[in-house]
């Protein structure tokens, strides 16, 4: 954000505690000092209001970044995102563009329970007119965010809440690396089964893959990085090689990008499949508070391992 804001005065940042407090998760640390309170704007607790102001400002030429303190709070701004941001370009027959990024932490943290633990991607990927990104690594987060800010469409940018502590190499300013929206990455090569994932469960999947390697099963991991558009080509290439697939995600199992990916595979790689595709998902319940329950509601390493063994008929 800092790098992009230095390049373009039209970029303004708005949200709760983004300025003087330096960000609830410190993502916006230092921005107020550099850019001032006209560009780094603290808002009241009024998501529908400031999401709408961002959209209105985008319609007339600014390029706002709207931070939701967490994506759980975006539901009160759902009307603005779905009815206005996503549709204005088409409703106006291309007369109005809405270059805006909505970003914030997504998914469960630790024991924040029912109302603060949503993985929201199923809601937003449903909507034509929105792009949806869900990076897992620091490098992808940086490059994808740059792409999102430079895009002329509304982008839903989902930052895994548990991933803020992950450290990793990121390219220097001069490299100006842009990770294109809608391009998946092969995060680990393998021959026996494909794991398709994104966001926080990417790390669960990596750990499971290491354990499975010990058992002689080499998994290929596809990190989707973007969920709308879906890079099905990369997924299909991998599945045509491994002939087996497990989709791992945090959102609830009913519908959503996880189901969409499975639909794409069965349609375009049916003849390559040696086993039914399985999904490891967040369980179909509102998030409980107690640690022992929460741990098991989220997709666990053990469940990923078990699913991969199952598609490999190694149980």
């Amino acid at each position: 954000m800092l790098e992009e804001m230095r390049l373009d005065e039209n970029i303004v940042l708005m949200g709760e505690e983004v300025g003087y407090y330096q960000g609830a998760y410190k993502v916006t640390q230092g921005l107020l000092e550099e850019f001032g309170s006209d560009r780094v704007v603290d808002t009241p607790i009024a998501e529908a209001g400031f999401a709408g102001i961002g959209i209105g400002a985008a319609m007339v030429g600014l390029r706002p970044i709207i931070e939701f303190m967490t994506w759980n709070f975006s539901f009160v701004a759902f009307d603005q995102i779905v009815q206005n941001a996503a549709k204005l370009y088409q409703m106006s027959a291309g007369q109005l563009q809405v270059p805006i990024v909505f970003r914030g932490p997504n998914g469960a943290a630790k024991q924040v329970s029912s109302q603060h633990s949503h993985a929201v991607e199923a809601f937003y990927t449903h909507v034509p007119g929105l792009w949806v990104c869900a990076p897992a690594t620091p490098r992808d987060a940086k490059g994808l965010l740059k792409a999102a800010i430079r895009d002329n469409n509304p982008v839903i940018f989902l930052e895994g809440e548990t991933l803020y502590g992950i450290k990793g190499e990121v390219p220097e300013v001069e490299e100006d690396e842009i990770i294109p929206i809608g391009k998946a990455a092969v995060a680990r090569e393998g021959t026996d089964a494909t794991i398709v994932t994104w966001g926080s469960p990417y790390y669960t999947s990596l750990a499971a893959a290491e354990r499975l390697a010990g058992a002689g099963i080499e998994c290929e991991i596809i990190d989707m990085r973007s969920l709308r558009p879906l890079d099905m080509e990369t997924v299909l290439q991998s599945v045509r090689k491994t002939n087996r697939c497990v989709v791992v995600h945090e959102h609830w199992p009913y519908a959503g990008p996880g189901a969409e990916i499975v639909d794409g595979i069965q349609r375009d790689a049916m003849d390559h499949l040696d086993a039914p595709i399985l999904r490891v998902t967040g369980q179909d319940v509102p998030m409980p508070y107690a640690t022992n329950l929460e741990e098991n509601v989220l997709p666990t390493e053990a469940r990923v391992e078990e699913a991969v063994k199952q598609v490999c008929y190694r149980q």
Binding site: A48, G49, F50, A51, G52, I53, G54, I55, G56, A57, A58, M59, V60, G61, L62, D79, Q80, Q83, N84, L88, M91, S92, L96
Partner: peptide, 20 residues
């Protein structure tokens, strides 16, 4: 800048244009 079928939210959009 538009006719809006979902009333109320467009007040915030108009405030956004004023913000700009």
């Amino acid at each position: 800048y538009g006719g809006y079928g979902i009333i109320g939210g467009h007040v915030a959009l108009a405030a956004g244009a004023a913000f700009k």
